[in-house]
C-alpha cells in the first residue's frame, strides 16, 4: 500500500517548508499562529475571489501549488481531511439564525458550511469529476484521507490524487476552544520557545496542506509513503509496538528521523517523550508544531515538512533516508506514517 508524494502545496503560518526548515523560520507571538496568506489572484480569478470563503481560498491556493509542483497529466480525485470543517461559514449562519430568531436568513453561509465544501471547490476549480470525499474525524482526519488514497492507489497506481489536510482558526473557534483551557497564556511566548516552557497548554494553529500523490514515481517525487496507520483508544505502548512492527515489515532496523507532533503542552508531550525514548538512539528527532500550531490536521503540515526534508536533503547532519511520523491526541487517536527516500 505504498505510494509517492509527487507534489506539495501549502498555505500555513510559514511562508514555505524551506523557510520552516531554515535556521530562521517565522516566529509568531501570542498563542495563535495564523497563515501567511498568498496573493490569491495568482490562483483564483479575481471575480470569483470575492465569493469564496477563506478556508476555500487557502485550499485552492494550496491545491493549485501541489498540482503545479507535481505537474500530472490530470487529477483523478480529491480527498480532504478537516477536523473543524468550514467553521467560519458555520458560525456565520448559526449567529444569524440565533440573532434573527430564524427569520430573514441568507442561504450563502449555509451553502458553504458543509465540511465537503473544501474538496468540492477544489474539484470544481480543476473540473475533476473523479473520486471526491471528505473525512472529519478529529486528529486523524488527514490520516483517514491518506489511508483512503493508499487504498485507491493500491488498486489503480497510475493515477494522481490530491490529498489535503485543512483547518481554519477563527475568532469564534479560538474563543470557544480557549474556554477548554487548551492554550498557553499569550504573554508567555514566542512560538520558538514552545517546547522550553514546560507548562500546560499549547498554541492554536491552522493551515491548508495538499499533496499530489500517485502510485507511480516521477522525476518530481519527494518520497515514498511506505505506510499509514491510525490507532484508536490505545496507549502509547500500543503505538510503539505498531511502529516497531511497521519498521520490521519494511526491513528497517531503525529510522533516520523521528518526526513528532509535540505541542508544548506538558500533559500531552509526556506521551511523545515516552514514544521517543523507544526510538531516539536510532536517529534524530524533529518537532514541528512550533511552526504551525496545534490543530486537528496539523499532521498534514508535519508530513509536508518530512517529505520536503527527504527530497531536498536539507539534512540535519546526515541525509535522512527514512522518517517515522507520530502524532497523537492522548486517550483518543494516534497516527503513524512511514516516509522513505525514493
Amino acid at each position: 500500500m505504498s505510494f509517492y508524494i509527487n507534489g506539495i502545496g501549502a498555505v500555513s503560518p510559514q511562508k514555505s517548508f524551506a523557510e520552516a526548515l531554515s535556521s530562521k523560520p517565522a516566529v509568531h507571538y501570542g498563542n495563535q499562529l495564523h497563515c501567511q496568506e498568498p496573493d490569491y489572484t495568482a490562483f483564483i480569478d479575481a471575480r470569483q475571489l470575492r465569493r469564496l470563503s477563506r478556508i476555500v481560498k487557502l485550499s485552492i491556493a494550496a491545491s493549485s501549488q501541489a498540482v503545479q509542483d507535481a505537474a500530472p497529466a490530470i487529477i483523478d480525485g480529491v480527498i480532504v481531511g478537516t477536523g473543524w470543517g468550514c467553521i467560519e461559514d458555520t458560525v456565520t449562519f448559526l449567529e444569524k439564525m440565533v440573532e434573527n430568531q430564524e427569520e430573514a436568513l441568507s442561504p450563502t453561509a449555509f451553502i458553504h458550511s458543509t465540511h465537503n465544501t473544501i474538496a468540492a471547490q477544489v474539484a470544481f476549480q480543476l473540473k475533476c469529476k473523479g473520486y471526491n470525499t471528505t473525512y472529519s474525524h478529529r486528529s486523524i482526519s488527514f490520516e483517514s484521507a491518506l489511508l483512503d488514497a493508499a487504498l485507491l492507489l493500491a488498486e489503480t497506481p497510475a493515477q494522481t490524487l490530491l490529498v489535503g489536510g485543512v483547518d481554519e482558526l477563527t475568532n469564534t473557534s479560538f474563543s470557544i476552544l480557549s474556554r477548554f483551557d487548551l492554550f498557553k497564556q499569550p504573554q508567555e511566548l514566542g512560538s520558538d520557545s514552545l517546547f522550553s516552557l514546560g507548562t500546560a497548554g499549547t498554541v492554536a494553529g491552522e493551515g491548508s496542506v495538499f499533496f499530489a500523490v500517485s502510485g507511480v514515481r516521477t522525476e518530481h517525487s519527494y518520497c515514498q509513503v511506505a505506510a499509514v496507520q491510525t490507532l484508536s483508544f490505545g496507549s502509547t505502548d500500543d503505538a510503539v509496538e505498531a511502529a516497531r512492527k511497521m519498521l520490521q515489515r519494511h526491513g528497517l532496523p531503525a529510522v533516520d528521523l523521528l518526526l513528532l507532533g509535540n505541542n508544548g503542552d506538558s500533559k500531552e508531550d509526556k506521551h511523545y517523550d515516552s514514544f521517543e525514548t523507544n526510538f531516539t538512539q536510532q536517529g534524530q528527532t524533529l518537532k514541528f508544531k512550533h511552526l504551525c500550531g496545534e490543530y486537528p490536521t496539523a499532521s498534514a503540515f508535519g508530513l509536508g515538512l518530512g517529505a520536503t526534508l527527504l527530497k531536498q536533503n536539507l539534512s540535519l547532519g546526515s541525509v535522512p533516508q527514512s522518517v517515522l511520523f507520530y502524532n497523537c491526541s492522548p486517550q483518543s487517536h494516534q497516527a503513524l506514517v512511514l516516509l522513505r527516500a525514493c
Binding site: 477536523g83 473543524w84 470543517g85 458543509t114 465540511h115 465537503n116 474538496a119 471526491n132 470525499t133 471528505t134 473525512y135 472529519s136 474525524h137 478529529r138 486523524i140 482526519s141 483517514s144 491510525t230 490507532l231 484508536s232 483508544f233 490505545g234 486537528p296 483518543s332 487517536h333
Partner: peptide
C-alpha cells in the same frame, strides 16, 4: 465535531481496530 459521536459509539461498543468519520 463530527468525530465526537463516532468515538463515543465506538468506545461504547468496544470497537477500536479502525474508527473514522466521513462528511460529504
Amino acid at each position: 465535531d463530527c468525530g465526537r459521536a463516532t468515538d463515543f459509539v465506538a468506545r461504547e461498543l468496544g470497537i477500536k481496530d479502525f474508527v473514522t468519520t466521513i462528511s460529504t
